[in-house]
Write a protein that binds this DNA or RNA. Sequence first.
DNA 1: GTTAGCACTCTTGTTAGGCGAGTGCTAAGC
DNA 2: GCTTAGCACTCGCCTAACAAGAGTGCTAAC
Lengths: 350, 350
Amino acid sequence: MFFAGGGMELTERKLKILQAIVSDFIASAEPVGSRTLSRRYGMGISPATIRNEMSDLEELGYLTHPHTSAGRVPSDRAYRLYVDSLMDRFELPDDEKARISEQLTRDVTELDKTIMRAAGLLSEITRLTSFAITPKQGENRLRYINILPADPDTVVIMIAAESGKIKNTVLKIKVPYTDEALSLLSKSMTYSYRGKTISDILTMDIIRNFETDIEAMSRLAANIIPNFMATLESMLDIDLYMDGLTNIFSIPEYNSLEKAKMFLEMLNRKDSFTDVLVNRDEGVIITIGNENKDDMMHDCSLITATYHIDGKLVGKLGVIGPTRMNYDKVTSVIEYMTENLSSAFEFSPG
Amino acid sequence: MFFAGGGMELTERKLKILQAIVSDFIASAEPVGSRTLSRRYGMGISPATIRNEMSDLEELGYLTHPHTSAGRVPSDRAYRLYVDSLMDRFELPDDEKARISEQLTRDVTELDKTIMRAAGLLSEITRLTSFAITPKQGENRLRYINILPADPDTVVIMIAAESGKIKNTVLKIKVPYTDEALSLLSKSMTYSYRGKTISDILTMDIIRNFETDIEAMSRLAANIIPNFMATLESMLDIDLYMDGLTNIFSIPEYNSLEKAKMFLEMLNRKDSFTDVLVNRDEGVIITIGNENKDDMMHDCSLITATYHIDGKLVGKLGVIGPTRMNYDKVTSVIEYMTENLSSAFEFSPG
DNA sequence: GTTAGCACTCTTGTTAGGCGAGTGCTAAGC
DNA sequence: GCTTAGCACTCGCCTAACAAGAGTGCTAAC
């Protein structure tokens, strides 16, 4: 590396060749040789010259040799360069745009279903495996708490957040209650927690708060509050949706049982995969091969983008596939979809 | 077939041999030959005799020949016989029973999570692909409808069924409302529909019902009822959970990409798979290979059992795998799990 | 600096031969 | 007449050998 061909650098021509190699390899999945290159891309240079250039590019770390006499294959570094500066911006065809908008703005009251539709559409368009996560709810603020009578010994706790997300649980309680007591408790709790974030409430010493009231009320609260907390905590769960898992069977990179198995098993560990996603930055993020921290993703690329609910809460949408993927098209699609989601959820549910 | 060896029938010895073959093949996944059979199972008969018997069994349709000089493999018919009369009842070890009970009776307020845990546990124990569906809600009866104020222009519709299942949606409405009007509408709707099944309500001419009231009320109802109906309809959706999909990679039957792909793609069509499950009878049902109507399942076996909510609503739990599976153990596990689920949900959520 | 030519390398596909497991048949034994 | 030993035969599978094809790297000429 240090002595690598004094002064050898990425000339205009080298870049052009590199771009051709990456494009060709992305399209064909076959190592590309000098002859093919000079034939297919009329660049007025002979195979021999190209060979020399390729040899330089290899020394610079942009190309690899699967074995002595095969064509060249782009390295992660080449893909990185390609993504950063070589590839053209891909403009989505109008009909595809229309289809996406239509699917994502229809019936948005149920966030989960819309997100599932987004993942489904994304895998269908990209022919890769797609995924989506719902927003972290920690920063979501409580709007109201409503505790409703159901049966003589059953109440329903209903928690609504500012984003519109609502969650309820059914609870059997041991102490008798009156509708007025429930209503009072609801109002009192709403008064105390309205506008606070879920995370904040979860760290507060809630039981204590309600001990000061009248005796009967206090007992009722003691029954209800643990369940309230549990429900609140479950609102923090991030849901992960995936689609197009079987798409990998049509991708040459996963043409062996061993590799397909590894891939599917990696995605099957939903918790750790969710962690990976949660920890990515906002905006459109592309990580290529070894750039992924997780060992099991060393020959995958991951593209994610963020969508927003109400301009605040952040969810993510993306694809995972072999490092050889159509970065330009995939990126455009994901970007367009998250934009659509964000505007669909501008003042809306969560 | 017609002239097949006049009077040839399943003697005691043939049954014994057949049982040995099925057991051995289930355990080893390798065609079993006469020599192995006579050696491994001390049945005091020489390989040659066994060969004759096997030849008869083949003619009777219980065995197959993958090719001329391989051992014998049980046919679907043999598995059917095995399941019906040859196999021993498998008694689950106590620790496994304890584990199942513990997992399935803990924290049963959320049906969905319990069902997911059941599927997870089932695939873990059987090393197969498991699935579970939530009950059909059509026969579930409505307990109450509650329409709650949220924002000046937003209400929450909450529908509770007798089984304990609760569903809510957020709805932006165009007409102004008062809390009293909502409360009145809730009571009125509850009064009208309490005790009726969801299916029945969905076929009623609901809008008409509420037109006779006072003017303002009628307008409010007109705004809310379509959404109410949509929510009610969504309560009918059956959820399908699967687990252990990647288990198939350790099963010899799916040792080719082609077959693994077929299998996963079949399960990926959730709608049609759900249909298959919904249409099966109650109780423990085993269908083997060609007994499955669906072409894609012709070399799979499917075992399902039903669990009950409140003694009425019916959900299902089961596994799918190659026809060569441990019918005895798998059946016991599924049966034990559904029994546990049913008793956990005896007077409970849904 | 570029290119033609050529030897060399490495993968892939095909073919042939040997091995092992298992059957089916025949003839001998009980 | 059922059971068994013996033996020829059939396949699938593994390995080695070989040819074809694609591509490189180097050298020498332009």
